[in-house]
Structure formats: structure tokens, C-alpha cells
Design a protein around this nucleic acid. Structure first.
Lengths: 385, 385
DNA sequence: CTATGTTGTGCATACGGTTGCACAGGTAAA
DNA sequence: TTTACCTGTGCAACCGTATGCACAACATAG
């Protein structure tokens, strides 16, 4: 720890500022550096952190004037503005975000809740990509991003509420999509601003940004039918999430439109993981009447399915389609046909929507749906003989 | 927006609290919800946010007493403690983090700087995994995580400094490892607490957490030599990063110890990307005297190298070793031999070190090195015939 | 029974910035 | 010249919490 020469800032201060009798003695806050070092001497104690008062003193104006310059108020004369700017530069002034947040009741920070254990959140490339979109939009808007991290959904919920209730964030983005989510109910009840990635059950009146998951399912299924398949299985995620329901709905719709029967034995749960996909695929192949094509509602499960096929020495004999267009799906063997979800845009749009809501440019809940696109690769690009 | 019944909180207030003449009129802060709704009526204005004063009034004590209960001060009688707790619960009191940060000069928040454009940061599974480690440790310590997101290194630098100078975070974790980094110099000069993931050039006296990269290079190289290889190439990252230097050093050491010559034509730069790895591998295979084994200092480049081999119809004819043990490397064709880096622990350890520094339990710079481990898979598990 | 702690609580002030209102000085209209 | 309105700035109160110091009540020692 360093000692610092005494600088009796307050001698030069704007008269309004009495010499402080700080409640702290010669106190070095644990672990904090020179900015927070107080020195007790015969004179008044001194902090090295420059404040608007210091700037005001240097520029020969009142603190309120400095504050107005900072806020870009129009009622400041150009000369004063210039003087204050110069003083700020000379004193290397930086406004204190906590003080500002306290006074303005806004933190310019938003929270991101992942709604799954941190452990799992990044297992799927979806999250990083969504975060990239969010980050990019928030950076452009001058907002900060706090990550809410917890080990369980219950902890996640309290962590998120804590962020909001403690005024640490102005609003949150959720990536949940469980059909029943206490957190969403709480947020609505306590009237906190939030945006969902992935739609909410309609009645809630929440803001959300989603892609057209029903269309996704239909696209994948119709593509497989166009290649001559009629026994099309679906490896789905848990049905308590809306993504799973929607992506299944598209599959059902497409089959129904084509007059094909729904075979319940061709619907299995892969739990949104690669391993689950492998297991599900093995189950399907063990059926007396196995499918000729499989639509997996997520790339991770599709990759798992490919592995199962390889393990059975049947690579290429069953058509596989995934969803997401994870960067790695192009590298699988065979390269995976998939439906490209605009994951980055999902994040960016959600972030922008939330900021617009916070700044009052958007009022009330708003829902946005982004389009997806089929990407045909070798895993399905052949016709059933 | 809702209207709210008038609740003249201040009538019941502790006498210290004069009825506020708030500077705000009937003012709804843009985009904020009911908690920040003020109502102008004939009486004094009212806020719905409960503060320690409200709690104090309800419990019949002074605000300072409430504050002490919150802080768990020992000089509070059990009865008072109980009374105050009850009042807090009844009023659904939640402390305001901004006010607390202002008074305590500590935010209980740390920043994470990715040191590459957000766009690239998540391309490599390394970052998500490091973040998971950081998140997990911070959650356990009750700290929050702010992500510093910017498009360019220069912006990243100003964004990071801004977080610190504005007192939005108490310290930062950097994932940079460029040999010369202005940001690090700035942090040291302004005496902000920070921890590096990946070592710093020694003279700096910074805290960092790293894995034993020289050992990594040696392990990989010695493994290849043990399989009979003598023409071992290295696909490296840019040499202005310390990771690259260290991982190369291990390679050089191992070859030297074994009495093998260094062939400069077998050292190529793959830029830490998959595409770069593919390009580099093609270059190597085009040499008059191509290598029989290649050590790639990162899994992404190793995957790229595998692709190049496949493109040349030479899969399996050149041994490949990567570094990181990304979850996906086990899925490549052939499965990739790699050196497992404790990425999660790297993040967790860095976070813990930073918190210990902030709380004064650790003083001065400290360096920590975590061990790595070779994972042999098919891409190299055969002997040169 | 007085002198000397000890314990628990309250008062006042501080943290750094924002903003309603008052007011001085200047300008333009009557 | 007087009245009316800007314009620019300062004053003072406020955001919600933390804490040094003073002090009252009570316990203990001499």
C-alpha cells in the first residue's frame, strides 16, 4: 500500500462544501486501492476521488452547473460549458455511477438470467450466441450487462429478483421458456420490466422475442417429406418447454396437411442434450418398424443421433435434420441439415426491446417473431429409394 | 401505468425524517415501474420504495439501528434485532445496492473483460467454460458479474477503465494474454485490483492464474515422440500472445532434450481459428518433406487440421494433437488427442483470487499455476511404422 | 456509595449527483 | 420607461445507507 501526499482539496473548494468530518478514521477499505485511501492528519481528511464539487471549484461554478453540463442541459452557456469541460479534463473527473444511480433511480444496467444452471447454459452454443447478440446491442446503447448466475432454477429465481429489488439492474432478459415459470409471474406481479427470449404463454401479456418455431417444425418435416420420407420420427425436448411444443406442432401440422398418420412410437424425448439424442436414436432404431428420417428439434440432439447411427454402422441410411445451425454442425459426419435460427438477432432484438421499454420509447408488452431458414446439407439431401 | 392509493408513509415516520419536499413533481421516470412512481397530491409526495427509515419507523428505532441489524453488528440486543427483522419482513424491505455501494465504496461486483471482440470471444469454447468457472465462484461468494463488451480491443480498454473509474465494479478479471497490453499498464498505474487469466510478463507484478503452458507443449511433443515421430510440426497462434510463446517453448524444450533439430519450416501460424488450422495444415502437407505429426496449440486449429487431412484424403496418416479438451473434440473424426486444460478451474480460481484481494485476505500480487493432463485419443494413438 | 466500565441506541454527517425553484441580469415588447 | 419574458446559474433538498461519536442505562469494582 502506498502513502499519498496530503492534498488539501477542500481549501480550494466551492464554499458550499464544508471541510468534511468524515465518519471514517484513517481507514483503508479492505483490498481497495489508492482511490479509497483516506489519510488522517492534523487537517481534515482527504479523498483522492474527484467529484463534481472539485470540478465546480476548479471551474468557479456551482456543482449543479457541473451536473447540468454532464447531462447536456441546453440551458448552459457555451462559455460555462467549455470551462467546466476543461476542468473535468484537467482533474480527470469521472462521474460515480452509484451516486448517479441512486439519484436517478436507474442503473443503466440490465440483467441476463439464463434459467438453467450455469453448468448447462453453455453446453449448448445457443447461449453464447444469444449473449453475443445481447452484448452487442447493449454496448451500442451504452448499457451494462450483469449476469445472474446460480446453480438451480430456484436460486436463479431469487438471484434475479434480488438484482431487481436491490436496484442493481433496471430490467432483465430471460432465456427461459418453461410453460409455467414462477419467476415470470413474480416479475409481472412486481411490475419489473423484462423481455423473454422464447415466447410466453399468451395470457401473460409479457414482452418476448422468439423465432417462428412452428414454421421451423413444418419446414424440417416438409423437407423430409419432399425427399420421399413417410416414416418421420421426432426427437423432441421436454414438453414442458414452449420451444418443444411449438417445434412439435409444426411437425404435426405438416404431417397432417400431407395426410400422413401420427405414430406415437416415433415421438421420443432427447432432453436437449447430445447424449439424450444418441439414446433416443437407438430407441427409434430398435423399433419393429423404424423411421427412415428423424427430425431433431435441436442440433445437439441431432449430433447425438448421428453418433448413434455411426455406432450402429448405419451412417447415411437415415435422414437427419436438426435445428439451430450451430457453427459446428457443418463439421459433423455427414454434415447436418438444419434450420438456421437467427440466434444473434434474437439476443440483440431482445436487448433493444428492453432498452426501448426502459426509456419509455415502447410502452406495454410487445412480441416480436423472427424468421428461420432451412439449410440443406448431406445428412438429409438424398431421396428415399 | 397504474395509479396507486396514497400512503402517507411519513406520518408514521421516525421523527428524524421530515416530510420530503421532493424535487420531482408528479414524475414517472421513463420506463420504470410502480416502485418509481411518485404521486403529487395535496400532501407530501410518496414513494413506494421502502427504506431503512420506513423499517425504523415500523420497529420504533432509529435508522442507524436498522442499518446495524443489516450489517449483523454485535452490539444490537436480541429483542431489537427481532423487532427490526420482523418489520423488514412485514414491509418487504430490500436494501438498495446503489446507496450501499455509494456509502461503502464497494459494489460487490466484478467485471469480466474478454479482450477480444465479443464476436470472437465465444467462437472458442474456452470462454464460456472460463465464464462458467468465474460465475460459479462469484455466486458462491455473493458477488455479481458485469460483462465488459466491446467491438474492438481499444473500445474494450476504455470500456473496462470506465467500469472501474465509474465505480461500477470493484475489480476486473482479464482474459487477455497479449505480451504488451496497454490496459494492464493502465490498471497497474491507476492501482485497480485485477486478476489475469493467462500469465503476464513477469516484470509487471500482476496477479494471474494460468496453466502450465510450457509443460503442455512438452507433454504433447513427448507423446508424439513416444509414438516414433521425429518430424513434428507445430501449428501455433500469433507469437505476440504469451500462450503461444509458452506452448511453443515446451515444444522446443522437448525436441531439444531429445536431440532433435528444430525445423523452422515446420512452424506455422494458425491464428487460433479452425480455418487457420486448415490453411496451416495444407501448407505443411505441401512441403517437400512434410511432418508425420502435428502439435496444434489449440483444439480449434487441430480440428481445422483434421479437416485439411480429410480434404486431402489423408485422414489418419498424420498424427494430430490439440490443446484444451474442448467438449467437442471427442466427436471429431478421428477423435482428437489433446491436452486437457482445467478451464473451469482457471476461471473459478481467478474469481476467488480477485475476491480475496478485494476483501484484503490476500495482499499484493499472487500467481497461481494449474496443472494440465494429456488425453490420448485416436488421432495420435498409433506408432509410426 | 461513588468511580469506572460495558452495552445498546440515537444523532449528525457523509457518500457523489440530480433537480425544483428562486433569482439576477439581460432583452424585447408596449 | 415600464412590464414581461427569457437565460443562465445557484441554493437547498433529496436519493438510501453507513458509521464516528456522544450518551443513557445498567453492571461491576473499589
Amino acid at each position: 500500500m502506498h502513502t499519498v501526499a496530503q492534498v488539501n482539496v477542500h481549501d480550494h473548494l466551492y464554499p458550499l462544501c464544508k471541510p468534511p468530518k468524515t465518519p471514517f478514521g484513517a481507514h483503508i477499505f479492505p483490498g481497495l486501492c489508492k482511490r479509497f485511501l483516506y489519510i488522517k492528519m492534523q487537517g481534515p481528511e482527504v479523498t483522492l476521488l474527484t467529484t463534481i464539487k472539485d470540478v465546480a471549484a476548479a471551474a468557479g461554478v456551482a456543482p449543479s452547473t457541473v451536473s447540468r453540463v454532464l447531462a447536456g442541459s441546453s440551458r448552459i452557456s457555451p462559455q460555462t460549458h467549455e470551462k467546466v469541460r476543461a476542468a473535468m479534463k484537467e482533474l480527470k473527473y469521472h462521474p460515480n455511477a452509484n451516486a448517479r444511480s441512486l439519484a436517478k433511480k436507474a442503473t443503466h444496467t440490465i440483467g441476463l438470467v439464463m434459467a438453467r444452471p450455469v453448468e448447462q447454459a453453455f453446453a449448448n452454443p445457443f447461449f453464447p450466441e444469444v449473449m453475443r447478440g445481447i452484448g452487442s446491442a447493449l454496448y451500442a446503447q451504452g448499457y451494462n450487462l450483469i449476469l445472474s448466475m446460480a446453480a438451480t432454477p430456484a436460486e436463479e429465481r431469487t438471484a434475479c429478483l434480488r438484482l431487481l429489488r436491490h436496484s442493481r439492474v433496471d430490467g432483465v432478459i430471460l432465456t427461459t421458456s418453461r410453460i409455467k415459470d414462477r419467476l415470470i409471474d413474480d416479475l409481472i406481479k412486481e411490475e419489473y420490466p423484462f423481455v423473454l427470449i422464447g415466447r410466453a404463454p399468451d395470457q401473460l401479456g409479457a414482452s418476448w422475442v422468439n423465432n417462428d418455431n412452428v414454421a421451423v417444425g413444418a419446414m424440417a418435416t416438409e423437407h423430409l417429406m419432399s425427399r420421399g420420407h413417410r416414416q418421420i420420427a421426432i426427437i423432441n425436448g421436454p414438453l414442458d418447454t414452449l420451444v418443444s411444443c411449438d417445434r412439435r406442432q409444426g411437425y404435426v401440422d405438416a404431417l397432417t396437411r400431407a395426410g400422413l398418420p401420427l405414430r406415437p412410437d416415433l415421438e421420443v424425448d432427447g432432453g436437449f442434450t447430445k447424449e439424450g439424442g444418441t439414446r433416443a436414436m437407438h430407441d427409434l432404431m430398435g423399433l419393429p418398424n423404424p423411421p427412415t428420417a428423424v427430425y431433431c428439434v435441436d442440433d445437439a440432439m441431432a449430433v447425438g443421433a448421428l453418433i448413434a447411427l455411426k455406432e450402429r454402422g448405419k451412417s447415411g441410411s437415415v435422414a437427419i435434420v436438426g435445428v439451430n445451425d450451430d457453427p459446428l454442425t457443418a463439421l459433423t459426419d455427414p454434415p447436418l441439415t438444419t434450420v438456421r435460427i437467427p440466434v444473434f438477432d434474437l439476443g440483440a432484438t431482445a436487448a433493444n426491446l428492453l432498452v426501448e421499454t426502459l426509456t419509455g420509447r415502447v410502452t406495454g408488452p410487445r412480441q416480436i417473431i423472427l424468421p428461420s431458414q432451412l439449410v440443406v446439407r448431406e445428412s438429409s439431401n438424398w431421396t428415399l429409394g
